[in-house]
């Protein structure tokens, strides 16, 4: 994991691709940089791609849950994309609670889902 997290901005949406192994230091960096960036650009949505992660386990799942909660407090929605079949099965078998995560198959569908989530949030209903 490099020192700075590459965050792309398209419109009011941020795109982040997490890669390699995540250690505690990397997790802290992600949380700091992502929250600061969301607040700085007043982002409405964040798309997190996890397909580049070496392992996705319960630790990563907890990290994602924390990041999503932080971003929600800043008034934005998050969608996670790039979960492979193997990872999906592992997470379900481990019993990792993932119900709070909004997921999509790819970036394109992820953007569409973000849009729907935002519309739902604007109308005050839940999804």
């Amino acid at each position: 994991m490099s020192e700075t997290l590459p965050i792309l901005k398209i419109g009011d949406t941020l795109l982040v691709a997490l890669q390699g192994d995540l250690d505690d230091a990397a997790v802290v960096r992600i949380e700091e940089q992502l929250t600061q960036e969301v607040a700085r650009v007043h982002a409405a949505g964040v798309l997190i791609d996890v397909s580049g992660l070496t392992v996705v386990d319960s630790f990563i799942a907890r990290v994602l849950a924390r990041v999503v909660a932080m971003i929600r407090l800043l008034g934005a929605q998050t969608v996670v994309v790039g979960i492979s079949p193997a990872v999906a099965i592992t997470l379900v078998e481990l019993g990792v609670p993932m119900g709070h995560l909004d997921t999509a198959l790819n970036a394109e569908q992820g953007l569409a889902l973000l849009r729907r989530l935002r519309a739902a949030a604007d109308h005050g209903s839940d999804r």
Partner: peptide
């Protein structure tokens, strides 16, 4: 259908931003 219309709107957003 709902998703694909949301997708094209999202694409329009992205295009507009670009």
């Amino acid at each position: 259908r709902d998703r694909s219309s949301a997708m094209s709107e999202a694409a329009a957003d992205v295009a507009g931003a670009a």
